[in-house]
């Protein structure tokens, strides 16, 4: 799952290295439109529906937070 997410993020913002352990939001690697794109791709890729209130920068700051979000919405 981790590699898939990194590939998706790299596709959205190819200029950044998402393998590095950085805060994607604080470092300006993802903005609000990137998050919208990311949500739509994650939903398609993992066949999930991410809860509207979870579309919040605080859930997209690292690979682990994104994995957590996918797992949370996968259970619903």
């Amino acid at each position: 799952m981790k590699d898939k997410i990194i590939n998706i993020l790299t596709e959205i913002r190819p200029e950044f290295d998402f393998k590095e352990n950085l805060n994607f939001i604080e470092n300006g690697m993802l903005d609000s439109f990137d998050i919208v794109l990311l949500v739509s791709i994650l939903e398609e890729t993992f066949s999930i529906i991410i809860d509207g209130l979870d579309v919040n920068p605080s859930n997209f700051y690292s690979i682990n937070s994104i994995i957590e979000l996918i797992n949370k919405n996968n259970k619903q």
Partner: peptide
């Protein structure tokens, strides 16, 4: 300041 890929995806999603 969208890339072309971003633009086309955003077009569909938004």
């Amino acid at each position: 300041n969208f890339t072309e890929t971003q633009s086309l995806r955003l077009k569909k999603v938004m």
